[in-house]
């Protein structure tokens, strides 16, 4: 970083860049959430199942996000772990209406939390209990119970109910993510 860049950073002219991983089972709404967070002129109309992964960028008041939108399909989930190192925050999306696969989401979350690249880092995790608009959706409290989120003690985490199609609840989550000291975690990552 040059002196000018630092100065620009202090003055808030240049935004800090943050790499975020967006994970979750297939059909949970990851791409839809990322799509909603993008500026309205860049939003896609049709959301199709992601193959492999896609990289999306959007900016908020203080940060510039680079999101790795991973595919949630079973056969692509083994790609996730290759991006853990780069990630400075994780967005984990859950389909709260899919009670049957809540165990699968928990299994994937446990695998993620026990991965060596994640286990010893204080990486913030934002959970979206998505599809709140559906009739048989579980509440965010119930979702956090089913995923045993209370057992995550060494990482800051937050769960918010969302409806990605309408964009409800997304801003709350992103605001929380901004509030956590992302640059601190990224620095720590480099030390380790």
């Amino acid at each position: 970083m040059g002196l000018f860049d630092k100065l620009a950073g202090w003055l808030g002219l240049k935004k800090k860049e943050v790499n975020v991983l967006c994970l979750g089972l297939d059909n949970s709404g990851k791409t839809t959430i990322i799509n909603q967070l993008k500026p309205s002129n860049a939003q896609a109309q049709d959301i199709v199942p992601t193959i492999g992964f896609s990289i999306e960028k959007f900016k908020t008041s203080s940060l510039s996000f680079t999101v790795f939108d991973m595919s949630g399909q079973g056969r692509y989930r083994n790609l996730w772990e290759h991006y853990y190192k780069e990630g400075q925050a994780i967005i984990f999306v859950i389909d709260s209406s899919d009670k049957l696969r809540m165990v699968v989401a928990k299994e994937e979350l446990d695998t993620l939390l026990n991965h060596p690249d994640i286990k010893h880092r204080r990486i913030p995790i934002l959970f979206f209990a998505n599809k709140m608009d559906l009739r048989d959706a579980l509440s965010s409290v119930k979702v956090s119970q089913l995923l045993c989120l209370e057992n995550i003690k060494d990482k800051p985490w937050h769960i918010c109910a969302s409806n990605a199609v309408q964009g409800e609840g997304l801003q709350e989550g992103v605001d929380w993510l901004q509030g956590t000291d992302l640059s601190f975690y990224s620095r720590k990552t480099r030390c380790m």
Binding site: L25, D26, N27, G74, D98, L100, R101, V104
Partner: peptide, 9 residues
């Protein structure tokens, strides 16, 4: 019965 149920193979 074993197979794809819901979205899970």
């Amino acid at each position: 019965c074993f197979g794809r149920y819901g979205r899970e193979d």
